[in-house]
């Protein structure tokens, strides 16, 4: 089982609903966030191109954060979801430094926090909160090993990219282009 997410950059309008849904679902402390929206403008006026991306942890297969964690608090759980065991984390910051996507942050309680792909919802057969709430339905979630999952189907049909694949992290967050 390999969970993955695909975000359609052609459908995303950058409303930040995914960010608020995540904050509410996961009780993320005020001012912090586990996902965020990036707006990329390319070119010179009048030839401009716009790309909107809802970003979060890439749940890398070759996760540098898991590799560098000195206590084993960062680990890859079932389905390839990268998680943090709060009571093993010492808050050394190594994983935050090691993440090329800057996807982790220090929770005000001291441990490191990040996106969990809402695994508590996924276990019950639901989609992560960000995916479920998206008003343009621009996000797809599912198991890459299952050819009939939403994410497998859309990745087969559409062209996609991952962020900084040259970092060798094998990310599981795809962007449809």
């Amino acid at each position: 089982m390999r969970y993955a997410m695909a975000v359609d950059t052609k459908k995303c309008v950058g409303c930040s609903d995914c960010v608020v849904a995540c904050q509410t679902e996961n009780n993320v402390p005020i001012g912090y966030c586990r996902d965020w929206v990036v707006e990329v403008t390319d070119g010179t006026y009048p030839q401009l191109e716009l790309e909107l991306r809802s970003e979060r942890c890439n749940h890398c297969e070759n996760a540098p954060c898991v590799r560098c964690c000195p206590t084993g608090a960062s680990f890859i759980s079932e389905g390839g979801i990268v998680k943090v065991k709060e009571n093993k984390c010492i808050g050394c910051g190594a994983c935050i430094t090691s993440c090329p996507y800057d996807a982790r942050f220090v929770h005000p309680r001291g441990y490191v926090d990040k996106c969990t792909f809402c695994d508590h919802r996924v276990k019950e057969g639901l989609n992560p909160a960000c995916v479920a709430v998206c008003p343009t339905k621009c996000m797809y979630f599912g198991d890459l090993d299952d050819p009939n999952s939403d994410v497998s189907k859309v990745l087969k049909m559409r062209k996609s990219k991952t962020l900084i694949p040259e970092a060798g992290t094998i990310p599981h967050l795809y962007f449809l282009i």
């Binding site: 950058g14 930040s16 960010v19 001012g31 912090y32 966030c33 996902d35 965020w36 929206v37 990036v38 707006e39 990329v40 403008t41 909107l52 910051g93 935050i96 800057d102 982790r104 942050f105 220090v106």
Partner: peptide
């Protein structure tokens, strides 16, 4: 140009 439009302000990052 790349900007975070959802107001991410995770301190230390």
């Amino acid at each position: 140009e790349e900007i975070i439009v959802s107001g991410r302000s995770n301190p230390l990052i």
